[in-house]
Computed example of a mutant assay.
Amino acid sequence: MSVTDIALIIFILLLLAYAIYDEFIMDKRQGKTQLRVNLQRRNKIDAVIFIGLLIILLYNNITAHGSLLTTYLLISLGLIAFYISFIRWPKMLFKPTGFFYANSFITYERIQAMNLSEDGILVIQLEQKKLLIRVNHLDDLENIYKLMVNYQ
């Protein structure tokens, strides 16, 4: 097993751990989920470039008669990257005491202000940064509003 194979295995395990956490574990943390909102997918071009580079590496490995293990690892990494980028939806989970955004938990007490831009982007001002939330369906903004009003 080469260093390349070991690095590929590490990246595959890290991406699998992230996908499992995002899909199954995050929903169970911090209490019952009150609202789940799908967000817009972003960075599609980055994912296409990454998968394209993996295809080039796979082609080079096959034409150079490289290791069969490396071929399988590259295919696995490409499939996981495709799942994370194009099948899985980024989401925002609202819990009784806060919400998950970008895989981090933010309590409701940290919210300083909330604004809605003209193009449907919810801006949540925290102590030191702003969260720009782009929902997939504009109806979800009303659900978020109702949940926030009920919290206060």
Rank of each mutant, 00 (worst) to 15 (best):
27 D>H: 12
27 D>L: 11
29 R>T: 07
30 Q>S: 12
31 G>V: 05
33 T>I: 10
34 Q>E: 13
34 Q>V: 08
35 L>S: 05
35 L>I: 06
36 R>I: 04
38 N>C: 08
41 R>C: 04
42 R>E: 14
42 R>M: 10
45 I>Q: 09
46 D>E: 14
48 V>Q: 09
49 I>L: 15
49 I>N: 03
50 F>P: 02
50 F>M: 08
52 G>K: 02
53 L>M: 15
53 L>W: 12
53 L>C: 14
54 L>F: 09
54 L>A: 04
54 L>Q: 14
55 I>P: 00
56 I>W: 11
57 L>C: 14
59 Y>P: 01
60 N>I: 06
61 N>H: 00
61 N>A: 01
62 I>N: 03
63 T>M: 07
65 H>Q: 14
65 H>V: 02
68 L>V: 11
70 T>M: 07
74 L>S: 03
75 I>Q: 06
76 S>G: 15
76 S>V: 02
76 S>A: 15
77 L>W: 05
77 L>G: 05
78 G>P: 11
79 L>C: 10
81 A>Q: 11
81 A>N: 11
82 F>Q: 03
84 I>N: 08
84 I>P: 04
85 S>V: 06
86 F>S: 05
88 R>K: 12
90 P>K: 06
91 K>F: 10
91 K>D: 13
92 M>F: 10
92 M>N: 08
92 M>I: 07
93 L>R: 06
95 K>C: 07
95 K>D: 02
96 P>V: 11
97 T>I: 02
97 T>M: 13
98 G>Q: 03
101 Y>H: 14
101 Y>I: 11
102 A>H: 13
105 F>D: 03
106 I>T: 09
108 Y>L: 11
109 E>S: 14
109 E>G: 08
110 R>V: 05
111 I>H: 07
114 M>T: 13
115 N>W: 09
116 L>Q: 14
117 S>G: 13
117 S>F: 02
117 S>C: 11
117 S>A: 13
120 G>P: 07
120 G>W: 09
122 L>T: 01
123 V>P: 06
124 I>D: 01
124 I>S: 04
124 I>Y: 01
124 I>K: 00
126 L>Y: 04
126 L>V: 06
128 Q>E: 15
130 K>I: 02
131 L>K: 08
132 L>Q: 15
133 I>V: 15
134 R>S: 13
134 R>F: 06
135 V>S: 06
136 N>H: 09
138 L>P: 03
140 D>C: 05
140 D>R: 07
140 D>K: 05
141 L>G: 04
141 L>S: 07
142 E>C: 00
143 N>Y: 12
144 I>H: 07
145 Y>C: 09
145 Y>G: 09
